[in-house]
Design a protein around this nucleic acid. Structure first.
Lengths: 249, 249
DNA sequence: ATTCTCAGGTGCCTA
DNA sequence: TAGGCACTTGAGAAT
């Protein structure tokens, strides 16, 4: 495929905000937050309407190189007989240079930009489901706040238990790790300090890494496991407190 | 484009391990770790040689739906006059169903699978650069171990300082956050307990979030900032200890 | 196969 | 704009 013709196709696609797919032999350099080099080889370059650009090899889901909200240029180098697609941006300052020695195919498509993926089973949704009925987790538990911003982070749920103690809840949709425990610890401390009231911290997750459980115990926090299912909406099916010997409150 | 013809193209591409790009109007359902639904719309479906599959809208770098190492099938539904591409896998058990009501274009390309991206500036590389000359960080600092596996994680660097104290070093290639501090804290405690020797913990990062620095101080850990540059190899340019008032050792 | 961590993480939201 | 964090995180390395 002629390079001049290719250049015209790409510029046209950019102008029309069409999804543009370039197949060809290229070498790719990236410089910015890191530095990478991809030797000459056959790849697919993808430009989207929002000026995101990515270079895909014939493996993996993630592209080898990528940039969002790029300034994209496409120029011919008459000396080297190559077509050079450059993507640049500031903040962070970075550059992708794809030098095509051969263009195998170019296709552009007018695909309307949309954003209508409906996702069920996110943490946010589980959070809402839990807030609907906290007594499910423990009798007498009443919701106070959700997604409360602290200096040290964002606390999933704050509630009050039957004995009037504050309860900080950190919810995870998958196995809890160290991060989950240290998050909960931070929020529990924050609440304790702010309110000066005895505060419990509960980590709620489908499972927990053994070492994270050790840390949790050390911090005097509690862990409950739970199951959930996802159909039309997320639904919390059951809570199991027996995995951990908890002092009876 | 005829659906029957499309089906043949896709099956052929799968057989030949070609990168296959399908453009068309489709609705996509995902069920597995979560559940998602994408209403009918024009999109690009990408199948690669390693049987990874992804559905891209005309925006963002990441696909709306994706699966790696999938079992991919492609069948006609004569009643609904649709072409159905299904991707399945076990562990985790999940399914993507893309139902095409219209195929706009299909192209397949024989792109050899390769894996030759050379990336400079990874944390691993910076780690190696630092290990080459730890005295750069502090006079008299001697490396003992690198990437040591603990029960609680993997410690970047362990060294011994001029006074014979153990030093645990956590290195970050970008701004240090809570996670970096709690990681370091864990490893420092682990080493302290194992060896029964006074142990210092040093966090080394280009910068640190203010709240993370507060936590670090609370834990009696140290923070040094550093600059690095990435050309052929990563190189640590300088270390600045003055950002924090550190007790003189 | 599980565990663990990095990533040029990306993307979303809110103060 | 920066902070904080979820993500069907993905991807690789080590156990």
């Amino acid at each position: 495929m002629k390079l001049l013709e290719s250049q015209k196709s790409i510029l046209q696609a950019l102008k029309n905000k069409e999804m543009c797919i370039v197949i060809g032999e290229c070498a790719v350099d990236y410089d910015g937050r890191a530095h990478s080099n991809l030797p000459r080889g056959k790849r697919m370059l993808l430009i989207k309407a929002d000026l995101s650009i990515s270079i895909h090899e014939n493996r993996l889901i993630r592209p080898t190189n990528y940039m969002m909200k790029a300034s994209i240029s496409c120029e011919l180098n008459d000396k080297t007989k190559t077509l050079i697609i450059k993507a640049k941006r500031n903040n962070p300052k970075e550059t992708i240079t794809a030098e095509f020695t051969e263009i195998i195919d170019i296709n552009s498509y007018d695909l309307p930009e949309s954003n209508d993926l409906r996702l069920v089973g996110s943490e946010k949704e589980l959070n809402d489901a839990l807030m609907d009925d906290l007594s499910f987790l423990e009798a007498g538990l009443k919701p106070i706040n959700q997604q409360q911003y602290f200096r040290t982070g964002i606390c999933d749920i704050i509630a009050e238990d039957a004995k009037g103690r504050l309860v900080v809840i950190e919810l995870k949709r998958r196995q809890a790790d160290y991060g989950a425990v240290t998050q909960l610890k931070r929020y529990a401390e924050e609440v304790q300090k702010m309110k000066g009231v005895e505060t419990r911290g509960i980590l709620l997750a489908p499972s927990i890494r053994k070492s994270a459980l050790d840390l949790l115990k050390k911090y005097d926090l509690e862990y409950f496991s739970y199951d959930f299912e996802i159909k039309e909406r997320s639904k919390i099916k059951g809570i199991n407190k027996s995995q951990m010997k908890i002092n009876e409150y």
